[in-house]
């Protein structure tokens, strides 16, 4: 089996993690119109919540622990929005302040995670997965589950956005908050639900990142955030479907390039993709009107 197909397999796994994370970030950005620089730490928090239920107390099966951990981060995100970011965003008209606050929140969360769980590399307890061959690809059962989770999330988010009242309200708010408010949408409730969804997806992405990488450290989410940025900007910031597409492109590009260049430069590949996108199509591949 060739190195190329091996890296395509890795690429699909990375793209899966990336698409979960990118959708979560895009949902939140679409509604609030600012970037949450602590998003990577939301991911790390999810990974460690899962770790707690998987390894430290109760010893749940990894997938059950993952669901609990993700929902907890969703709840945490709602609290963070209600008592910290929301008030800052409402009080200051320029986005500078809230961006600095999310940057600060990232520092606080990272160091609290370090304080609680330490800097040691940790591992989930899960059964050793056997490998399967699918066409030219060779993937472990765990990797297939990760890909499956991502597909499930993409599908359900698509259904929520297109078929439900919540989804329609979210899209309306994302296009024009004031207009949505005057047309009777309860923007406060939608914002809360969006933060819950976005936080849960961050927690989920953090956990599957830990699963797919085979270990977890407090800083892993922060490093991954920059790959998410590349995917989100490639797809057009705030565009959910763009984020999905961007995630697949960046996921494959970083992993396939790693087959030819030193894998240590994965991050740089993502960054170069980000810069090239900004230079050629500053609004992303799927341009959303009126954002740039």
């Amino acid at each position: 089996m060739s190195l190329f197909w091996l890296s395509v397999g890795f690429g699909l796994v990375t793209a899966s993690v990336l698409s979960i994370a990118s959708i979560g970030l895009s949902l939140q950005f679409g509604i609030t119109n600012y970037v949450n620089f602590a998003y990577g730490d939301f991911m790390a928090l999810g990974a460690f919540f899962t770790y707690v239920f998987n390894n430290q107390v109760l010893h749940f099966n990894i997938w059950i622990a993952m669901v609990i951990g993700s929902l907890l981060v969703g709840a945490f995100a709602v609290i963070v929005n209600r008592y910290l970011l929301g008030p800052f965003a409402r009080r200051f008209q320029t986005t500078h302040y809230v961006l600095i606050v999310t940057f600060g929140l990232s520092l606080v969360m990272l160091n609290l995670i370090y304080s609680i769980w330490g800097a040691d590399v940790r591992f989930y307890s899960m059964p050793i997965a056997s490998a399967l061959s699918i066409g030219p690809l060779r993937l472990t059962v765990t990797q297939l589950v990760v890909i499956g989770i991502a597909a499930l999330m993409i599908g359900s988010i698509h259904l929520v956005l297109q078929r439900t009242r919540l989804g329609k309200s979210m899209r309306a708010m994302s296009d024009n908050t004031t207009l949505a408010m005057t047309s009777g949408i309860d923007t406060k409730r939608i914002t809360t639900l969006t933060w819950f969804l976005s936080g849960s997806m961050a927690g989920l992405a953090g956990t599957v990142l830990g699963i797919s990488e085979g270990n977890l450290t407090p800083a892993s989410g922060e490093l991954f955030l920059f790959v998410i940025f590349a995917a989100v900007i490639l797809g057009g910031i705030g565009s959910i479907y763009g984020a999905m597409g961007g995630a697949i492109i960046i996921g494959l590009a970083t992993e396939i390039s790693a087959a030819f260049i030193d894998p240590a430069y994965k991050l740089d590949i993502a960054f170069i993709a980000l810069i090239i996108t900004l230079l050629i199509r500053p609004n992303g591949l799927i341009a959303r009107p009126g954002t740039a």
């Binding site: 600012y34 620089f37 940025f229 900007i233 810069i275 900004l278 500053p282 740039a292």
Partner: peptide, 17 residues
């Protein structure tokens, strides 16, 4: 070419890269 939050994203990414 970039508005505030794009600029912030690119700069923080640059710093890490």
């Amino acid at each position: 070419r970039l508005r505030t939050d794009y600029l912030a994203i690119v700069l923080i990414s640059l710093s890490l890269v």
